[in-house]
Write a protein that binds this DNA or RNA. Structure first.
Lengths: 402, 402
DNA sequence: GCAAGTTTGTATTTTTTTTTATTAATTCAA
DNA sequence: TTGAATTAATAAAAAAAAATACAAACTTGC
């Protein structure tokens, strides 16, 4: 575990051996397939004898393991090496308005433990924060994984977050210092926080369709609307970590009031919340819908999307309208950033059939032909665990293991 | 000159010494002030004895020079070292519709030679391309700088450019391969191209107010409208190098037809061209202006800005309107990318007095309070040579010397 | 089934780099 | 003015890495 505690970029006279071992482990853990000694040595610019020696030491330290031999055309077959995924773990926590969940991942980002507190209700109080830390502590104990084997914890938290400073503005903002600072006094490992949109982007980058993409958008379309942008292979956090407020772009002509206090925000027309509101308005204005007829409780956007899939005319028309407006907004940003792929994530990701064409036609409406031609529209495949996977990936990302 | 010819990231068994020397030269050339041996050794993670040896070898090679001693509080005073700025040169060329200019810069990005072809008219013909290469060849000869001492050439060219592939879509598009490929057969050094907006951003990053900024916008407001975005310290080129088409954001309500074929483009209201058009319309509609009365030839946007500065009411009102709309659009993008600074560059940069407040109020109209608070609005100070400075900087940027 | 060709991996030698020790240059206080 | 403290640069010793040479493991063609 010592291997990851020091910062590789540090200027101190850290031994090259340490740095080189870290490089080897980073390389092996980032690689999809196991690598041979010559491959590793080439990548980390090391001679084969020293590379072999370092790898053998890493094997002695139980950090990497040999795993068979590569099938080759000719010549002696090289042994293959990979990181022992159970050497260390990372914790992902997601705190939302009505839910608190935790997962523990190994170095291969496979979930090895998960826990959930269904009764949890997020409040901006010390008691609530205590509840969160207690839940984390207890879950880690339950998992049976020693705290010293945990590399770090990533936390996704509702509301506005300054991921660089580790500050949460809407919840747990009563602390003297940062939220991450507070949490790090409770645990023996480093803690990172970010908002759900950035975590969704990270999950998509690590597991999903944004893998290896240098320029991409990951739209987080659920109750609200956000967007993670990948430029030059890195998620854009912005100067204070606020980047991604797609829902507050002022580009729609309607005069719906947004909860940010302004009018004309994209999120007042393109978001789960907006879809629910508009549906209600339409029903009140006399439109008919199978869904409204059979719904016993409040209609939520998930139900509207399902109804659209089942052929409900009003639902289809509203979904198409939403998709078209989203596409138009995306086309605008596409002109600016020229991404290679746009991925629709969040809870709307399942509604590909209904949304794909309308988003596409919206994009055609606003995007220039050259950047549009080089951009593909995709829908996320990571699923609803995206946020917690992103939270877990946060630590490995910071440690350069992913 | 050999020092810069190999790519540092190569996987071949390049000697570490070569890489380390490149690192030392990069570090010294990037640094604003000369550095001492211990400082260099700390930064490039080398022991003082080897660092000293390599620096002495670089001095023997005439690449770096000693330049006095540092004044310190106590202890032996260290010698200071810096790159010999006349060791190598980079060429910057700018090709616009009616003008062709070239400058040669030393490693300190000081202009050591410049030439201009005033009669040049850009055409998409082989003759025109021949004229360009002949002008470059002749200018280099005139400068007296040997071609073998030139690191490379950066070229800014009007029209749409794929900077990654080295393709120019609007001009010299008749070539079999890329434009950079063609030029590299004519010269013994590497050639890079980009569009004026990216070069403006680079110039601002190297010389101007975007220096050391990790997240910034550099608006190119001249005849047209573009924007270079800096995220994570790097200019966003996009997947094909098309990033920055700010002028074609579809967010204005007017139905003016843009030359891209669409309506509602920001550039139809916010750009020098738009300002001229709107001014003409207003005069035709009966508005009065001192400028229109005394102008003998066609009124251009520069004249309108000057008139505004001198108190012409119509010009002021149009400029304010333009500023407000620009600010509104910037506020939208600011929500998305959370920059630390927005720099207004291009030919409108001189109109700070007239534009500052209106842009600011436009931004307040659309931006969220948190990202707005952390963003400063500035006006460029690089001046009209920005494009050619950016072109010259392109080579040094690619060689990691800047 | 064996020699030629190819690639991996290890042992040995050589080179390079770091570490440690030492000398040099400077300030400051007694 | 002299020596204690501090930092820089060099010299010598020790350690680490690379280069070289070679052995091991494999394929293929005869």
């Amino acid at each position: 575990m010592d291997l990851f505690l020091k910062d590789i970029g540090d200027v101190s006279n850290e031994s090259r051996q340490y740095v080189q071992k870290r490089k080897i482990v980073s390389l092996l853990n980032k690689s999809d397939a196991p690598l041979t000694i010559p491959e590793v040595c080439q990548k980390v610019r090391l001679s084969v004898p020293t590379g072999t020696r370092l790898i053998n030491e890493l094997i002695d330290d139980k950090i990497i393991v040999e795993c068979g031999k590569r099938e080759t055309e000719n010549g002696r077959r090289p042994s293959l090496y990979q990181v022992d995924t159970s050497y260390a773990y990372s914790v992902g926590v997601v705190v939302v308005l009505k839910g608190l969940s935790l997962s523990i991942f190994n170095l291969g980002m496979e979930e090895v433990f998960s826990a959930e507190n269904e009764d949890f209700v997020l409040e901006n109080t010390e008691e609530c924060l205590t509840e969160v830390t207690a839940f984390i502590q207890q879950s880690i104990e339950e998992s049976g994984i020693a705290e010293k084997n945990i590399l770090g914890m990533g936390m996704g938290i509702t509301g506005r977050v300054n991921s660089k400073a580790g500050l949460s503005y809407n919840y747990f903002n009563f602390l003297d210092g940062s939220l991450t600072g507070y949490l790090m006094t409770r645990f023996s490992f480093p803690v990172y926080i970010d908002n759900d949109t950035h975590l969704l982007g990270l999950a998509e980058q690590v597991f999903g369709r944004a893998k290896n993409e240098k320029n991409a958008f990951v739209v987080n379309l659920s109750h609200g609307l956000g967007m993670a942008m990948i430029t030059n292979g890195e998620i854009v956090l912005g100067d204070d970590g606020f980047a991604g407020e797609f829902g507050h772009m002022q580009i729609v002509d309607s005069q719906r009031l947004c909860f940010c206090g302004k009018r004309g925000c994209l999120g007042t027309e393109v978001s789960g919340h907006a879809l629910e509101e508009i549906f209600k308005e339409q029903i009140e204005a006399g439109e008919t819908s199978l869904l409204a007829a059979k719904a016993t409780r409040k209609v939520n956007f998930k139900m509207i999307l399902d109804a659209a899939q089942e052929g409900d005319v009003l639902s289809i028309s509203l979904a198409h309208n939403l998709g078209f407006r989203l596409g138009k907004a995306l086309g605008n940003i596409l002109n600016l950033l020229n991404p290679h792929v746009i991925i629709i994530g969040g809870k709307f990701a399942q509604a590909k059939e209904i949304l794909f064409d309308s988003i596409k036609s919206g994009m055609m409406h606003s995007a220039l032909s050259l950047p549009l031609r080089s951009c593909e529209l995709k829908f996320s495949s990571v699923g609803k665990e995206a946020a917690i996977k992103g939270a877990g990936a946060l630590t490995l990302k910071k440690m350069n293991l992913i």
